[in-house]
Design a binder for these strands. Structure first.
Lengths: 115, 115
DNA sequence: CCAAAAGTTCGACCAGTGTCAAACTTCGAC
DNA sequence: GTCGAAGTTTGACACTGGTCGAACTTTTGG
């Protein structure tokens, strides 16, 4: 039992139910090239990854904002490991709500946001 | 030979080559619910359709803007028939450039923008 | 206990974009 | 030739959304 569990100050952010997510929300999340870069990175690396390990062409506070949007759109799951916030795609769950969407998008030719 | 062809004032708007269209452009076009409504309508009715026959919850000038964005994103083809501007999806062409994308998007549950 | 690491939160700013009304253009009908 | 129908263009406006820096929080390491 770690500190967070004892004291009730759970730093795990809230994750929406996929059933409540609209296509509008998903498209708004994925229209930003930085966010697509994050999703592509998470998809490429099979294991979970900390925010900081993805190098993005934006500041830390902006990156936080992007991860927040992705989480609210039901695309990623976040949890803490020490001071690092880990990220993982909600691949199966998301595909159940929007069948084929993520795979089709990731299959398209796309550009690097930093280039 | 009609007037437009004789005089060189062709009212046919320019249509971009699908090879020059980016995924970014496509997503920016489809993130707007009114534009998705147009695309869905064009997909549902197999024949070409005039701008005015799709009833949208926006003014005429705004509708013109939306059709313009869709055309620039390579999603629709436009031509004049009298005073009416006809619209058609560039279905096969688009699917060659972004395989499966349109079909997958159209298959998702989505809401009416006017409701 | 203190300092560094990793993110978050909070304002503020600014560019883009959806929106409309008004004036204009083009074509078809009478 | 005139009028109406169908869109377009232009200009203006408001709102959203991405961006940053600065201050803050939490955890880990020495």
């Amino acid at each position: 039992m770690v500190a967070a569990e004892r004291a009730g100050r759970d730093r795990t952010p809230p994750h929406p139910d996929l059933a409540t997510i609209t296509l509008q929300q998903v498209l708004e999340a994925l229209v930003d090239p930085v966010r697509r870069c994050i999703v592509r990175h998470l998809h490429a690396t099979s294991h979970d990854v900390a925010c900081g390990t993805i190098d993005l062409p934006v500041s830390k506070s902006t990156a936080t904002h992007h991860f927040h949007v992705l989480r609210e759109a039901g695309l990623i799951r976040q949890y803490y490991a020490g001071t690092s916030r880990m990220n993982a795609l909600r691949l199966e769950e998301f595909d159940r709500a929007f069948p084929g969407l993520l795979a089709t998008l990731l299959a398209q030719r796309d550009v690097d946001p930093g280039a």
